[in-house]
Design a protein around this nucleic acid. Structure first.
Lengths: 340, 340
DNA sequence: TTGTACGCGTTATCAT
DNA sequence: ATGATAACGCGTACAA
């Protein structure tokens, strides 16, 4: 199709292409009048510069990309807001790039870095250890946010919480309430990421309280099922009830699962926390709004997002900077748990 | 930096650039052995083609873009999944493009169409009527999803529900339960989109039941506040309670607001539905999982998403197609409302 | 089957 | 202050 190019705009205005380029890129050395005339015709004819051509030619671009695996995860929602705000505040362009479940986020990052001449990258979620070495293909600074990046062990910059420790802290609290048979809604067996960490924390807490670990109380997500959903929490809890195991408390490894667990208990005619206590993990907004509000571990998402951007810009500006930050989470007590 | 280009790969392999190009683009007329050798060195040296250059050169690209305003909106989550699945199923590439709150999604679309040589576009959310004429700048087919596009009135293709009718239906149900003083948690006054539609539906239902509309029962969101959030639902309900108005039911214009409303009532020591009934709108998953489950209007999101893609491909293939589809929503009865 | 050369639309460099 | 022109990295017609 006869798309409008910079050449035709130049012809229309009776000037050279470089003058048009100067106009649209706010270059200083250009006559105000000619600039105005050019901008007017551009508006009149709806000329839109081709970004591919610009990116191809440009040396650099002051653009930060945030790559999110599972962009619809409610856990990411306010973090993304913070990223957007902080990045534009620093006068950089912000690209939010969705990474599909089956895609390798590092591959996407390497491509995008070339395509858009990125200045920096944030990884949100995903990032299993077996792709860690690929990170070396990146030539710009990057920060890994909210994934237990410590496990990657390659000196990468990251911002996270210690999932094992926080999980342990939560379960310690539950034990201190007198619970000794705490069922767990966990990830599948093949999960080597946060799911495994949180389960480790659970076991550590039990040990400290001299409680024998009982594998029968650990409900594992079926392979291929989405783990951290309400549906899964509901299904696993139903199954747990059907098994007839004795327990006084359910520890769900995400707030969404905890909500599913609560609903399953309600549907079975149980009361919370009188009959069963329920605890979650994440600190989603909806956990506070549930009735009863859900005892959980709140990750300081906004602060973590801010720290991520701060760290990224320090790296970009080659400031000396601590490349690892492990945030402390907060134990939020809700009405969903009680002392026995 | 000495980035690896197709030229250098060609040199490394001792072949011409076009042969390399043929290799990476799966062209038929190329010797299998040379192709293999090229692909091997590409892997060895981690060569990544520059997408900007490719897009610039390519005539077309079999790519569909979904532009979402408010990508973190839980309402969009499963629709996006469907888009992704259906588009890749049809062997097209899928781009999910986040549109910032202050951005004009049509501008973004026009740019992206040029940059990526798009074959089609889906608009999800946003799209106020004052940008409707800009849509003519698009030269590829597009479908508007889930926004009351009828109001745009320019013959654009869209998939939606009739917000006014469905809202009316819900309120009719509430009236049929004997409620006569139904408070509303609404959008701000300047909202001319779905917020206004749903409020119209409310008024129509009242009329049918001979109930006088009382503006004092309509709690409007403060300007600049995010409307459809739990926080807002909570705040508006607190305010409503403080006003001391008499009412037996709250109609929140989104499920998130309804959950906020419930929590505010619980915090005030009220019971649901014994003291107050609460109804929402949207049919989010969490509405079912809340306790009590929330009476709401469920929009058939997945079906709407499927219809959107179907319509888009029909347009691309120039099949004759009904360019407007208005889906029927479902009235979901939950435990949050009761007959008086 | 393969290589050469041109052009995609833009920005940067150099003249003027 | 402005214009001509050479890249940017790749795909493709055309020639071989």
């Amino acid at each position: 199709m006869g798309q409008l190019t910079i050449k035709e705009v130049a012809k229309l205005c009776g000037v050279g292409v470089s003058t048009v380029s100067r106009a649209i890129n706010d270059h200083p050395d250009i006559n105000e009048d000619t600039k105005k005339k050019i901008m007017d015709t551009i508006r009149e004819y709806n000329y839109i510069p081709n970004n591919s051509a610009r990116n191809l030619k440009r040396i650099d671009s002051n653009t930060i990309a945030v790559l999110a695996k599972g962009i619809t995860n409610p856990f990411f929602a306010d973090m993304i807001q913070v990223f957007e705000r902080e990045i534009t505040k620093k006068r950089y362009s912000f690209i939010l790039q969705h990474v599909e479940e089956f895609e390798d986020e590092v591959d996407v990052a390497v491509q995008l870095e070339k395509e858009k001449r990125l200045k920096g990258i944030v990884f949100l979620g995903g990032l299993s250890s077996h792709t860690a070495d690929k990170l070396e293909q990146l030539t710009v600074p990057y920060v890994i946010s909210t994934v237990n990046a410590a496990a990657l062990g390659n000196g990468a910059a990251y911002v996270t919480v210690d999932d094992e420790r926080e999980s342990c802290r939560l379960v310690e609290y539950l034990c201190s309430c007198g619970h000794r048979r705490i069922a767990v809604l966990a990830a599948g067996r093949q999960d080597a990421s946060i799911g495994a960490q949180r389960l480790n924390g659970y076991r550590r807490a039990l040990e400290q309280y001299g409680i024998v670990y009982d594998d029968a109380l650990v409900m594992r997500t079926k392979d291929g099922q989405p783990t951290y959903s309400m549906e899964n929490g509901y299904a696993l809890t139903k199954e747990l009830l059907n098994l007839g195991k004795e327990f006084t408390c359910i520890y769900a490894m995400s707030d969404s699962m905890a909500i599913g667990a609560c609903k399953a208990l309600f549907d079975a005619g149980k009361r919370i926390p009188e009959d069963y206590s329920v605890a979650g993990y994440d600190g989603l907004t909806v956990a506070q709004y549930y009735e009863p509000s859900i005892t959980t571990i709140r990750q300081p998402r906004r602060e973590m997002a801010e720290a991520t951007i701060q760290m990224l810009f320090d790296l970009i500006r080659k400031k000396p900077v601590r490349r690892q930050r492990i945030f402390e989470a907060e134990l939020v007590l809700g009405g969903s748990t009680r002392k026995l």
